[in-house]
Design a protein around this nucleic acid. Structure first.
Lengths: 151, 151
DNA sequence: TGTGAAAACATACTATA
DNA sequence: TATAGTATGTTTTCACA
C-alpha cells in the first residue's frame, strides 16, 4: 500500500474530477511549482496509484441509449467454468464491465445497447448462450451519478 | 445523436483505452496528420461525444481494499423521496456511484471502504440511516474487468 | 492542410530541510 | 535522503494563413 501526504491526496482528488488539467495549473492551486507537481504525478503513476487515464464517453450521444445491469448465476461453479465464462463474456463487445461478486448472483455485467430491440438481441444471442450461464436478472439503468470517491 | 465515420470511431476506441496519447502518435497510427487528428478530437469534445478525461485510480494500492455493491429498496417512492435519497446518498464520500435502476431494488450504490470493519461503519452509520431506505442487499466485489464497450 | 507561436511537458542542476 | 526551486530543451497544443 502506497502512503500519500496531504498534497498527493489533493492532487489525486483534483485529477479524479478532471484529468485534463495541466501540471502548472494544478501546482498553482496547491502552491507548488510546475516541475514539483509533475514529479509528484509521475511518482504516483510509477507507484501504481494511478493506473492510467480514460476517456469519459457520452454513450447516449453515440447512439447507445440503453444501459442494463445483468445479474448472472452460474449453473456450475468450478474453477474451469469461471474461467470459461469470463473468457466468453469478455468477447462480447456490448459488455462494458464484468464484476465477479459474492451473493445471490455470481456475476454482474454492465451491458450497453442501442435500444431495447438491440438489447434483446444481445441478451438472447450472446448472454443466454454463455457457457454455464444459469439464471439471469436484468436491471435497466434509469440514471447514474459518478462521484470522486473517498481519499 | 452524433454520427461518426470510421476514423472517429477508431479515435474514440483508442482514446477509451488510453486517453494520454498525443494527437501526433494517434494520427500516425491512423494515417492522419497531427492537426487533423487534433481537430477531430476537439470536434468530438464540442459535439459532446467526449465528456472528459478521468483518472483510473488503483483503489487497493490507496488502501481501499473493499468494494461492495448495495441494492437499496426505498420504503416510500414519491418524487420527493427519490430526490431526498439521492441528495443524502451523494453526500457520503464512500459512495462512488449511484445508479437509479428498474427492478427489485430501486438503487445500486457502489461503495468503497478500507476494509470490512470500515465498510460496516459506512453501512450502519451512513447507509441504514438514509431517508427512505428500506431493504438493503450487499454484494462484495471479488474482481472486476473493464472493457472499452461497443463502437 | 501546413506552419509557427504559445503552452505544457520533461529533465538537469542546485538548494534546502 | 528526499523534495523543493530555477533554468531550459523538447514536445504538444492550437490558431491562422
Amino acid at each position: 500500500m502506497i502512503d500519500l501526504d496531504a498534497t498527493d491526496r489533493a492532487l489525486l482528488r483534483a485529477l479524479a474530477v478532471d484529468a485534463s488539467q495541466s501540471a502548472s495549473a494544478l501546482g498553482r492551486r496547491l502552491g507548488l511549482s510546475q516541475p514539483a507537481t509533475w514529479r509528484r504525478i509521475r511518482r504516483l503513476e510509477e507507484a501504481g496509484a494511478i493506473k492510467g487515464r480514460r476517456l469519459r464517453l457520452n454513450a447516449e450521444a453515440l447512439g447507445f441509449g440503453v444501459t442494463v445491469f445483468l445479474g448472472v448465476k452460474l449453473a456450475t461453479k468450478g474453477r474451469v467454468s469461471l474461467e470459461d465464462f469470463e473468457r466468453a463474456v469478455s468477447a462480447i463487445p456490448e459488455v462494458q464491465r464484468v464484476e465477479h461478486i459474492l451473493g445471490l448472483y455470481d456475476y454482474r455485467l454492465r451491458v450497453v445497447a442501442r435500444d431495447i430491440p438491440d438489447f434483446e438481441r444481445v441478451l438472447r444471442r450472446r448472454i443466454m448462450t454463455l457457457p454455464g450461464a444459469g439464471e439471469v436478472e436484468a436491471n435497466v439503468v434509469l440514471s447514474e451519478e459518478r462521484r470522486p470517491g473517498p481519499l
